[in-house]
């Protein structure tokens, strides 16, 4: 479904990702692990198109999307929960969710019911500005917004980072539910290794912009060398 071949990407002159080859099939949950600053977010951004690959090739659903803009990729069914949430703080919670419908081929407000079921706090706050929400609530909003698009591929960049434990639980429950009950494929960047192991079908471990390990099982001993500080 998604294939990156020998992708190189980064900011201006400094390349972060080197020669990354990455595969994801339908319905699969792929976890990306690695320490801070090794290129996990860069990988996600390159898949979304927020960063353009300098070299290599990206295919999605059988089409070459290497040169396309994020908006086109979004219309092809990729949805993105960025690190740092990036919700629209001057727009209401409801408007943020409505923007998620932008790429949904069958937009319907009924979808919000599911999202509010996942994250009841969003319903309570729906008239408030996104910027009034706490960090954890903003993260829930960012995930809700991505789900409103009913994507084929959901990119989650450290959804549990810097968030209080009960909200982390709520988010993890949603990811588990999506895996069980929908056909959404996911790329999940995660620091919580036990959680990653519980939902992941396939694992990549990145270090210094290169893929150092991949496999269907997270081989703790080999992986840990790249994950421990």
């Amino acid at each position: 479904m998604l294939a990156l071949d020998n992708v190189q990407a980064g900011y201006d002159e400094s390349m972060i990702l080197h020669d990354v080859t990455f595969r994801l099939s339908e319905n699969q949950v792929v976890c990306v692990l690695g320490r801070n600053g090794v290129g996990k977010s860069t990988l996600i951004k390159t898949i979304m198109g927020v960063l353009q690959a300098e070299q290599g090739r990206i295919d999605f659903a059988g089409e070459d999307i290497t040169k396309t803009k994020p908006a086109e990729r979004a219309h092809k069914g990729i949805s993105y929960v960025p690190q740092g949430r990036e919700i629209f703080s001057n727009l209401s919670v409801e408007e943020n969710l409505t923007l998620g419908l932008e790429t949904n081929p069958n937009p319907s407000l009924a979808l919000f019911k599911n999202i509010y079921q996942y994250f009841p706090v969003l319903k309570e706050m729906k008239k408030r500005n996104g910027g009034d929400l706490s960090g954890g609530q903003q993260q829930q909003l960012a995930i809700g917004r991505a789900l409103a698009a009913e994507p084929n591929l959901l990119l989650l960049d450290e959804p549990a980072e810097g968030i209080q434990p009960n909200i982390v639980d709520a988010i993890q429950d949603v990811i588990i539910d999506l895996k069980k009950n929908t056909e959404t494929a996911m790329v999940l960047v995660e620091q919580d290794i036990p959680f990653a192991e519980s939902v992941g079908d396939y694992f990549y471990v990145i270090d210094r912009g290169r893929i150092m390990y991949e496999g269907e099982e997270l081989d703790r001993e080999r992986a840990e060398a790249y994950l421990s500080l």
Binding site: M48, G49, V50, K69, P70, A71, A74, H75, Y80, P82, E86, F88, S89, N90, L91, E95, L99, G100, E102, T103, R145, A149
Partner: peptide, 16 residues
């Protein structure tokens, strides 16, 4: 309003 606030994110949501 979305584009003026956060261009990249708006684009990621499929806005031209």
């Amino acid at each position: 309003r979305a584009v003026m606030q956060n261009r990249k994110m708006a684009s990621s949501l499929g806005i031209n």
